[in-house]
Design a protein around this nucleic acid. Structure first.
Length: 624
RNA sequence: GGGCCGGUAGCCUAGUCUGGAUAGGGCGUUGGACUUCUAAUCCAAAGGCCGAGGGUUCAAAUCCCUCUCGGUCCGCCA
């Protein structure tokens, strides 16, 4: 609705400025006044005009005020100093808003753009820890946001199956006799095999798909995987945790054995050449096993990727060679011990190494091939990356430009640290996401139980999960990505305020609608159809606050999508819930004179909260 | 040493791109509100040299310069 009233306000301003024979500025800005009592929209156009006209902004405002025609949607326009404040006519406005808000409320018209969004992409050498979670949560929320803003979004997890870290795991299995618990591993893979073969991940979506066999082995999120709630499985048994444990042991071992590093190098070389099918199987099994665990963790957080893309395929299908040849053709590469791309002309001192001295590719080379591939899949390539990747992606972006491919847009985020310091899979210092989730749900369960002894065990479990996961996702989403986070349990899992209070507002709204008994009945709809209720209803201050908040959702979606940030949504939905809670507290709904209008208002609030939470990947429970 | 990011009440944080009205939230603190649709709520109060200094401007948290503190990157790691 704000789009509409903004346009109305703008048009009336322009008309008035034209009438005065002033030049209409390119983009007239409208803003929200600091306080709703001062109006619903404010124009600062007089400031913009002042310099050219050599008049004081106040005088210009007065001139405009003399000629302005007020559109119907507004009640009045007031001059306050140089500002012009527009006041919405809430009788008209609320009627229009109620017509606008349906289940899909918030969704913007299609942009016709396809965005390839890569996020999470944690190395399959252990479970996700809370350092990874920021990437996953930002990425997944961004997916919802950008989709709602009218884009087609495809999410990808880039699977690192070729790096030294995976080679070390294979080394551990083959040479050190380490193993993961076969029974449990089989349980995972069996379950996966039995599930339906959804073609989404295995489809040949690459223009170079002739050799992406490794992709076929990747299993879907839909796959049934063991449930952690089953107490016979403890977290250490979870497949990705086992692999993380193994990786930790190999690291400890290898630190004291320099010769063995060479053996690891040989493993990398052998896997890259693809000449040893038995070895390939060990690599693929290790990676796949780990990914199963990772997917399960992500699923708990309501996160699902459209595709898992294995980096290995880009070596096997010669994309890497093609990219390297392309760069050689630019004449900017140089071969000394290694082959590298000189970037000094672009203001980067650090050269980009393309091949090791033994000829094998590096992570960045393969990433370059991956980005080239992505570049042809959509209009925008978007990456969510830790800020430590800034230099690397900058180098890759320049290389992509040289290859005439699209450079990615990147959302960088800063790290999450523990109060004791940074996390490390290698050193085995981390809090896993599984632990975090378990703790969150358990704490939520205590809360639910203490408040709702009347609920069934089943309901309690479901609600606790929704609240626990909501708390985690909200904790991460609410902060802009460039802020550093020090993880604290009590901050992450707070159920006073924060996400739980938003979910609570939603549950309250649901309860009200349910309790009144006749909402959405034919009789009720007929009543609305007669226009009876709106005519008799002039929203009071508190209702106006709420109406304003509901109306803002599309504009919040648009602005957030423009800056590709999700934290404004988190702030918005809290303000929305707060406005509803105030309304709920101070106004009777059921049985009041304007019951129908208020029920409608409650229903529209419910939708706005639900859809906003959805953007953050947070469930909206019907009861709490 | 160079590049990038951050510094806003006791704590967390929005606003910085695109300068504009009284710097917006939340936690915590203090006081108040449940015989009334769920108190995971609401009401009220206290709490700010917006890291420091200089500059530009009618106007600076926001733009420019210098400095400072914290983080991070500058691997034939990923």
């Amino acid at each position: 609705m704000y789009f509409e009233i903004k346009n109305e306000a703008l048009n009336s301003l322009k008309t008035s400025i034209k009438k005065l024979n002033y030049e209409v500025p390119q983009d007239i800005k409208l803003e929200f006044p600091p306080n709703p009592k001062m109006g619903d929209l404010a124009s600062t156009v007089s400031f913009q005009l002042a310099k050219k006209l050599k008049m004081s902004p106040m005088d210009i405002t007065n001139k405009i005020m003399e000629t302005i025609e007020i559109p119907e949607i507004f009640e009045k326009v007031e001059a306050k100093g140089p500002y012009m404040n527009f006041f919405i006519n809430y009788n008209t406005f609320s009627k229009k808003l109620f017509e606008t808000v349906d289940d899909g409320y918030g969704k913007l018209p299609s942009t016709g753009k396809k965005i390839i969004l890569e996020h999470t992409s944690a190395n399959p050498n252990g479970p996700l820890h809370i350092g990874h979670i920021r990437n996953a949560i930002i990425g997944d929320s961004l997916k919802h946001l950008l989709k709602t803003a009218g884009n087609d979004v495809d999410t990808q997890y880039y699977v690192n199956d070729m790096g030294r870290q995976i080679a070390m795991i294979v080394f551990g299995i083959k040479k050190l006799g380490l193993s993961i618990d076969e029974d449990l591993a089989n349980l995972y893979t069996e379950n996966s095999k039995n599930s339906k073969n959804n073609s989404k991940n295995s489809k040949n979506n690459s223009k170079n798909s002739k050799n992406n066999s490794s992709n076929d082995k990747v299993l879907n999120l839909d796959d049934k995987i063991p449930n952690l709630d089953d107490k016979s499985l403890n977290l250490d048994d979870k497949i990705d945790h086992q692999i993380g444990n193994l990786y930790f042991k190999v690291n400890q071992h290898i630190n004291t054995n320099d010769d063995e590093k060479i053996e690891v190098d040989n493993l990398i070389k052998s896997y890259e050449s693809g000449g040893n099918p038995d070895l390939d199987k060990v690599f693929e099994k290790a990676v796949n096993n780990c990914l199963l665990g990772v997917k399960e963790t992500l699923a708990k957080l309501n996160i699902e990727h459209d595709e898992f893309v294995w980096e290995g395929q880009f070596v096997r299908n010669k994309d890497v060679d093609m990219v390297v040849d392309g760069l050689i053709a630019t004449g900017r590469t140089k071969k000394e011990e290694v082959l590298f791309l000189n970037l000094e002309d672009f203001g980067i001192e650090k050269e980009l190494v393309l091949r090791r001295s033994d000829g094998t590719s590096l992570y960045s080379t393969r990433d370059l091939a991956y980005h080239t591939w992505k570049s042809n899949q959509g209009n925008i390539v978007l990456d969510v990356l830790g800020s430590d990747h800034k230099l690397a992606i900058e180098q890759i972006s320049i290389a992509l430009e040289l290859l005439k491919e699209k450079s990615p847009e990147v959302i960088f985020y800063e790290f999450i640290n523990l109060p004791e310091g940074s996390m490390s899979t290698r050193k085995g210092i981390f809090i896993s996401v599984d632990e975090l989730v378990e703790e969150a749900i358990s704490r939520a369960k205590d809360e639910v139980k203490s408040r709702r002894s009347d609920l069934q065990e089943e309901d309690i479990a479901k609600i606790s999960e929704e609240i626990g996961i909501g708390a985690i996702r909200y904790y991460i989403s609410r902060i802009s990505p460039e802020k550093h986070i020090t993880f604290k349990w009590d901050e992450a899992l707070s159920f006073e305020r924060g996400c739980a209070s938003i979910q609570y507002a939603h549950a309250r709204a649901c309860k009200l609608l349910e309790k009144c008994g006749h909402f959405n009945t034919e009789e009720f709809k007929l009543n609305i159809g007669n226009d009876k209720l709106e005519e008799n209803w002039t929203p009071n201050e508190i209702e106006m606050d709420l109406i304003r908040m509901i109306a803002k959702l599309p504009i919040i979606v648009e602005e957030s999508a423009n800056i590709m940030r999700v934290h404004p949504i988190a702030q918005y939905v809290q303000d929305l819930a707060s406005a509803f809670n105030k309304f709920y507290k101070s106004e009777q709904v059921i049985g009041c004179e304007t019951e129908s209008a208020r029920l409608l208002l409650v229903d529209k609030t419910r939708i706005a909260i639900k859809n906003s939470l959805k953007l953050l990947g947070v469930a909206a429970p019907n009861k709490m």
